[in-house]
Design a protein around this nucleic acid. Structure first.
Length: 498
RNA sequence: UCCUCGGUAGCUCAGCGGCAGAGCAAUCGGCUGUUAACCGAUGGGUCGUAGGUUCGAAUCCUACCCGGGGAGCCA
């Protein structure tokens, strides 16, 4: 048995492929079967004169997603997807699939999500999962090469600590338990045992967020490093992300092609330093005249684009009447695209004045909202690192800046192109008394943290770490609109099936 | 929880007070190189649910259910 991915090694040989019908076309004496086998897609040409009668009848019975074994000679052919095709000599139908719900045409999100178990077979979803796999492999390779030990934090936890986030509650024998929202505190304990560690596991947040960046169950990678300060932490995060992008560019060319991902900015991210900006400078940036001007310019260019699209739509509608059928379909599609884009523009036109106002009136000490993040990141093509946030808006375990007690030694990495925060991290408070004080300030129960406080009692050291959101990273590298397409079976508000 | 957009054939949508429509999919037929193939024919409906206004409601009003996008929160 040969896999489609390896067809180039079998030119002019007779091989047998096993797979599913992705799509098919036919004429009287010729059948074209697009076969997918999980490794790729190959067009198989069945000519009536070249195969036994049973094989021809088998071909005629095929429907989308029918399973089959197919034998033939591999030939190079430019007309075929992938550059190779199979001149079929025999085929054996395993099962004829009736009424496969997902056709090669367009579908809505709701329908596709209901059929996620089948949607995974579609090209774009296939490509996204391959990129996800490459990213996961790159993450392990990077840390293993750097001498990190992969260790697992528990998923059940007894403490709902860390403050504001809503957690999933569950029962652990007769005790109240929660699903973990982060493995970090445990990561710190493990780093004190092994020096450099990373966790790789699922995390759960019960927030009722319905946005393209949120899931209730997502995967997070959290390295924790003994004897690392904030600068070392930021350097590691940048090198780490660069390696991931580099590996994806190197090994997923075909997948990125299928996803129609423009790789220009990804290449820049590998080659250029990520801008490092303090929170305070970022606030200045938001309030600046230049930013206000940038938003005004953006407003103008959106208005212009809207006019251009309206004109294009008029021209298309005029052409529609006497157009041929295939051209009509093309026009309809383009008009649909235009309508979607115009909706987006109108939303922008409503939002931009508010963004401008919120940026202009931003007060030092507040946390950045979605629009503020957008304004900051749209000024760059590569991720930016924002550091030293006001301590008040950050978690209790983050160390204060020795040069300014109001600041926490925290860092966020914000991805470009609207993908938002992909990394959040900090240097941790390593002084027992200060940490106790913070716990009291945040009104957290001390007894829950007794084991965590032990880490400061017995050989405390400066240490740092960060968490990378896997799905947001996949979404960004794939250029996907929504994180629900970055994980096989996304869990989000109102979606527990399939 | 709030704001906003939507729910019409298996799918994607049009229709927005007066006979329920199109494309794709399905079924049948045609076509020797197609590639979201093409051409012809056929079948296919609880217009999200409940109530109201009206001579008449998919269309207007009210409530509810479900979904998309966003705010808050965050990776």
């Amino acid at each position: 048995m040969v896999y489609i991915k390896k067809l180039s090694e079998h030119v002019d040989e007779k091989v047998t492929l096993k797979g599913w019908v992705y799509n098919y076309r036919s004429s009287k004496n010729l059948y074209f079967i697009e076969l997918r086998d999980g490794s790729g897609i190959c067009q198989c040409v069945v000519a009536r004169d070249e195969v036994p009668d049973e094989a021809w009848q088998g071909a005629e019975s095929l429907r989308q997603e029918s399973s089959l074994e197919i034998t033939g000679t591999v030939v190079e052919d430019e007309r075929s997807i992938g550059g190779y095709e199979l001149q079929v000599t025999d085929l054996n139908v395993i099962q004829v699939a009736e009424d496969y719900p997902i056709t090669p045409k367009e579908h809505g999100v709701e329908f596709l999500m209901e059929n996620r178990h089948l949607w995974l077979r579609s090209q774009r979803q296939w490509a996204a999962m391959r990129v996800r796999n490459e990213i996961i492999f790159a993450i392990h390779t990077f840390f293993q090469n750097e001498g990190f030990i992969q260790m697992d934090a528990p998923i059940f936890t007894g403490n709902a600590a860390e403050g504001t986030t809503t957690l999933f509650e569950t029962e652990y024998f007769e005790e109240q338990a929660y699903l973990t929202q982060s493995g970090q505190l445990y990561g710190e304990a493990m780093a004190m045992a092994h020096g450099l560690i990373y966790t790789f596991g699922p995390t759960f947040r019960a927030e009722k967020s319905k946005t393209r960046r949120h899931l209730t169950e997502f995967w997070m990678i959290e390295p924790e490093m003994a004897f690392y300060d904030l600068n070392m932490n930021m350097d590691l995060a940048e090198r780490f992300v660069k390696v991931i992008i580099g590996r994806v560019l190197e090994n997923c060319e075909n997948e990125l092609n299928i996803l129609e991902r423009d790789t220009e900015n990804l290449k820049k991210a590998v080659e250029h330093d990520f801008p490092v900006i303090s929170y305070t400078d970022a606030v200045e940036n938001l309030k600046s005249d230049e930013t206000a001007q940038m938003l005004d310019d953006m407003m103008e260019s959106r208005k212009q684009e809207k006019e251009d699209l309206a004109k294009e739509k008029e021209e298309l509608e005029a052409e529609h009447g006497q157009a041929k059928k295939w051209r009509k379909a093309q026009i309809d599609q383009r008009i649909k695209d235009i309508a979607a884009r115009v909706d987006q523009i109108e939303e922008d036109l409503r939002n931009i004045p508010e963004w401008k106002k919120s940026a202009r009136e931003f007060e030092w000490g507040a946390d950045f909202g979605g629009s503020d993040e957008t304004i900051l990141t749209m000024q760059y093509d590569v991720p930016i690192l924002v550091h030293r946030y006001p301590a008040e808006i950050k978690a209790f375990y983050m160390k204060r800046d020795p040069e300014d007690d109001k600041l926490a030694l925290a860092v966020d990495m914000l991805a470009p192109e609207g993908y938002g925060e992909i990394i959040g991290g900090s240097q941790r408070e390593d002084d027992l008394d200060v940490l106790l004080e913070r716990i009291h300030e945040h009104d957290l129960p001390e007894n829950i943290f007794d084991w965590y406080l032990d880490l400061r009692k017995y050989g405390t050291v400066p240490h740092s770490g960060f968490g990378l959101g896997l799905e947001r990273t996949v979404a960004w590298l794939c250029g996907l609109h929504h994180v629900r397409e970055t994980i096989p079976f996304p869990r989000m508000m109102g979606r527990l099936r399939p």
